[in-house]
Design a protein around this nucleic acid. Structure first.
Lengths: 138, 138
DNA sequence: GTAACTGCAAAATATTTGCATCCTT
DNA sequence: AAGGATGCAAATATTTTGCAGTTAC
């Protein structure tokens, strides 16, 4: 599992450091999204706040994780699917955010329907975020 | 036009003050979304930053404007359609954000397709945000 | 006149940057 | 050994809160 995580880092030309392994592990063991604060908490404040910012930013740049736009404009991160590349994300799945427990689900199996835009508009990215109550909270 | 705006405020049990009229006017004359900074700029720094925060918050609570989740997690606000009520928004239209010029369009005529969620999940709000280049920038 | 709204000051949060030190390769 | 990554300090930026003065009704 750690190997797994290290692989991902190496594949992206990133040196394998503890913070990166730990944070990436978190995402792996969490089929959902994490906020900066979640990461701080789950790593037991082991890493500097700044390190987490920089790690997340690096991961986003490399296409390892992506941000999720939320209705309350908090910043969430989630693991990318395999077909993401640096600078080019393909996370066309739907995100579900539970208003009650705050958990964010990546609904990988649901794909975002094609949107027919007005003439002249070119799409590069589409986000579909559903809010409500999840099965545990409903 | 000002009457128009005042009407909306009265209908929502808000006293008609200059800041509220000016800010609501901005939205009326701008079929797009505005960020906090846009409002500051367009009102010529006439109003305190805090007043703008509070005005926007009030508008959101009353269902006059709604926030738009964006891929870069900046905070955007746009006018609600008529069928919005306090605490219950129905802005099921698609938003388009131009990466180039930064303009946000409310594509009112396009409605968000129904999403069939996993068993037990209940939807209360859905946001569909498309990013790319608008017709002017493409 | 009273309740609601605004502006100012300041606190609380969140994010970014510079730099010296430490770790990975 | 060299380059990159981290931690700390501090600079910025963003948002919230308290309170006194002002305005709308």
């Amino acid at each position: 599992m750690n190997t797994d995580v290290s692989e991902i880092l190496k594949r992206n030309q990133l040196s394998v450091t503890e913070s990166r392994r730990r944070i990436l592990d978190l995402f792996k063991n969490n089929n959902g999204a994490l906020a900066h604060a979640d990461i701080e908490k789950h790593t037991g404040e082991q890493f500097d706040r700044v390190t987490i910012y920089r790690t997340l930013q690096t991961f986003v740049e490399k296409g390892i994780v992506h941000t999720i736009p939320t209705a309350d404009n908090s910043v969430l991160y989630a693991l990318c699917k395999d077909d993401c590349e640096p600078g080019h994300h393909h996370d066309n799945h739907i995100h579900f955010i539970c208003d009650q427990c705050g958990t964010t689900y990546c609904l990988d199996h649901l794909t975002i329907p094609q949107v027919s835009l007005p003439h002249g508009f070119r799409e590069t990215r589409t986000d579909l975020v559903v809010s409500g109550k999840c099965d545990k909270c409903a």
